[in-house]
């Protein structure tokens, strides 16, 4: 019952924030509210037992998305053209669609119903057999890296492609390092001292999340984003130019491909060892060890690609010339 109350309260807050985002006229405020929205939804994910997802949402939605939106706003201007307050046709479409969808939910199994169809398909097998078959306690990692390894490969490829797209869209004549704006932050002593204390800890935490992902919440996706967050913090305070010296653009771009190649290479190694693509069992004499090696390698590949893409995307936004 307590859980239900917490859940209802958080969901209601989420709805209120969504209304606030829609109503507020200033884009800057809307973006900051989106950050709060994401953090709150991460809390809801935790209360619904999705700890891995909550982890990712907190790092990506509340941290990274907000920073990227703010960087884009600084390039496009925070003011929205004033429009007539409501679009009645838009509101009608939304009400009709929403009404139809709510009618559709009336047949749905209730929240937490153990007999819902979604719990009858492959999930019971994953829960019952993955601890023995794969040999690691975190079932989310087992499913992500082993049972559904093909899916994850596809998703890493999407991230790689998105990174390339941003790189192609934002590089070129418009790029100039914004030295004036950077200097202001660098001289803020509190920020400098605190960030110096925090950055090593964030990096260490990213490595922990990367390599402890088999046993607890975590894995390559989260670790990559957290690793990049440390770098972004550095770039925000010391300036993009300084950050570029630590991680030159060319070298970061090599890591884009390196992570993906590590993933595909692991799959090919399985082929060479006589198994199917991404069938890690054959990588070692003991099938469970093979699974461990395979998962470790592909998670590392995911982490490298995600971190490199996120760092590169941020740097491209931040180093573009202000109009």
């Amino acid at each position: 019952m307590t859980i239900a109350l917490v859940d209802i309260a958080l969901m209601t807050f989420l709805a209120i924030i969504a209304v606030a985002i829609t109503q507020v006229r200033d884009l800057f405020a809307a973006v900051v509210l989106t950050g709060i929205f994401s953090l709150l939804s991460a809390c809801i994910f935790t209360s619904l037992d999705a700890v891995d997802v909550a982890f990712t949402e907190a790092a990506v939605g509340a941290g990274l998305a907000t920073v990227l939106f703010l960087a884009a706003l600084s390039l496009t201007g925070p003011r929205e053209k004033t429009q007539p307050h409501h679009s009645w046709s838009g509101l009608c479409v939304c009400l009709l669609t929403g009404g139809a969808l709510i009618y559709g939910t009336l047949d749905m199994p209730h929240l937490g119903d153990p007999n819902a169809p979604v719990h009858q398909h492959v999930a019971p097998r994953y829960i019952a057999e993955s601890p023995e078959e794969i040999g690691i306690p975190n079932m989310v990692t087992s499913v992500l890296a082993s049972y559904r390894g093909y899916d994850t490969l596809g998703e890493v490829t999407v991230i790689f492609t998105a990174g390339l797209a941003v790189l192609l869209l934002l590089r070129g004549s418009g790029t100039r390092l914004d030295a004036v704006a950077d200097q202001a932050m660098r001289h803020a002593m509190i920020l400098r001292v605190v960030s110096k204390l925090f950055i090593p800890l964030i990096l260490l935490f990213a490595l922990y999340v990367q390599f402890h992902g088999d046993f607890g919440p975590g894995g390559g996706f989260q670790a990559g984003v957290i690793f990049a967050a440390a770098f972004i913090l550095y770039a925000l305070i010391y300036g993009v130019e300084e950050a570029r010296r630590v991680a030159p653009a060319g070298r970061v771009q090599v890591f884009f491909a390196l992570g993906l190649l590590l993933y595909i290479g692991t799959g090919l190694a399985c082929l060479l060892a006589g198994g199917n693509f991404l069938e890690y069992k054959v990588l070692a004499s003991d099938p469970t060890y093979g699974e461990h090696y395979g998962i470790l390698l592909i998670e590392l590949g995911v982490g490298i690609t995600v971190a490199a893409v996120v760092i590169s995307i941020f740097c491209h936004f931040a180093s573009r010339e202000r109009p």
């Binding site: 949402e57 990274l64 079932m139 998105a162 894995g219 995307i313």
Partner: peptide, 16 residues
Amino acid sequence: PLPHVLILTAIVVGIA
């Protein structure tokens, strides 16, 4: 665990 896996990757793909 299955929806968790789908959404975990969707979040990172979403930001990209």
